[in-house]
């Protein structure tokens, strides 16, 4: 039995699947996801669709914040840009196959515009610039009545792709599933490649990165573009899922939620987005059950339980940052390492 994983050359080190074991588990997981609708109820299928959409969005945010180290508090706004672009294009009669990448491209463009200040800003100041982006985009959505339907929101025409119609929940689930898997593969490969190494170098010490020849501004802008592209795709799917979109789906609270999911999962880990989203949604379902039970048990005090969810999520964020700042991905790694050598850990 091997005592650990030892790489003898760089090719080995960069392989996507480090061991056959990982590959087997992954294939099993994918098959489970593909067969899931056979046993899952309608409700579970729509929850899983939401999970898939959130995973795509979180992967995008993870590229920007986790790998390049640029804090973004405006991610939901870019998701919104994608949602409205796709819906408007479909409304104008464009086929879904064109509207979907256009949603990503539009979000990437807007993301790059708000990424320009990153030429001169870092850390806190950039975070504040993204808050400004969030408010400006949200305002535009709310007030540009002729294009976005203003505060009343807009009705989303269901997209079609060949024989598939995405007003069918099951087909939307499979579309989301395929795109989420594709997003994970893309992010894994970006991280392995030259650009991913440039991102990490900029995150760790941007002056040193510049000295060894990384074009800092170019890669920062690129990471904004990639991140917003993912956000745009997630937005297009979210619009299909929600059927009616208003600015309220894309507020700063949603942005904070995305960031919280990334942190809980583990910033700078490819699988961080998936772990974080999974944890978040499971906790949300548990709290839903708890709240309903409390409401039926104490019908006189319903007002007490309205905000349980908010308080618990707030506490989860704070506790994770204090006790588990590297997120679930890092914890999972330590647990795995421990069991691999158990019971002879020395």
């Amino acid at each position: 039995m091997p005592a650990g994983l030892f790489h003898e050359n760089y090719r080995n080190d960069e392989r996507i699947f480090q061991t056959c074991f990982v590959k087997a588990w992954l294939i099993a997981f994918l098959i489970a996801c593909a067969l899931f609708p056979l046993i899952g109820s309608k409700y579970m299928i729509s929850i899983m669709t939401e999970v898939g959409i959130a995973i795509i969005a979180c992967h995008g945010l993870n590229i920007l914040t986790g790998f390049t180290g640029q804090i973004s508090l405006g991610h939901a706004a870019f998701v919104g840009v994608g949602a409205y672009t796709c819906s408007i294009l479909i409304g104008q009669g464009a086929p879904f196959i064109i509207a979907l990448p256009m949603a990503g491209a539009m979000a990437a463009l807007v993301g790059m515009i708000f990424g320009i200040p990153s030429l001169r800003l870092r850390g806190l100041y950039l975070a504040i610039a993204t808050i400004a982006a969030q408010f400006i985009i949200e305002f535009t959505i709310r007030r540009w009545d002729s294009l976005t339907g203003g505060v009343e929101g807009m009705y989303v025409e269901p997209g079609t792709l060949g024989p598939f119609h995405f007003d069918n929940r099951l087909q939307l689930y499979y579309l989301t599933f395929v795109l989420a898997v594709a997003a994970t593969i893309v992010i894994k490969n970006i991280v392995r490649a030259r650009s991913g190494r440039a991102f990490v170098a900029i995150r760790d010490r941007y002056l040193a990165a510049e000295v060894i020849g990384v074009h800092v501004f170019k890669y920062r802008l690129m990471s904004f573009a990639v991140s917003s592209f993912f956000a745009g795709i997630a937005g297009a799917l979210l619009a299909q899922y929600l059927e009616v979109i208003t600015h309220e789906s894309f507020t700063i609270h949603q942005s904070i939620d995305y960031l919280a999911m990334c942190i809980i999962g583990g910033l700078g880990h490819v699988l961080g987005g998936i772990y974080g989203v999974g944890f978040w949604f499971i906790l949300e379902r548990i709290l839903e059950v708890v709240t309903t039970n409390l409401n039926t048990a104490f019908p006189d005090h319903i007002t007490w339980f309205v905000s349980i969810k908010e308080i618990v999520f707030g506490c989860v964020i704070v506790l994770f940052l204090i006790f588990e700042p590297d997120g679930l991905a890092a914890r999972w790694r330590t647990i795995r390492a421990y069991w691999k050598l158990w019971p002879f850990s020395y």
């Binding site: 975070a127 904070i256 919280a260 908010e310 704070v318 940052l321």
Partner: peptide, 14 residues
């Protein structure tokens, strides 16, 4: 910085 910003955001929720 991200931890510190995020912890204050967690506080806003609570």
């Amino acid at each position: 910085i991200i931890s510190v910003i995020m912890v204050t955001l967690g506080l806003t929720y609570i």
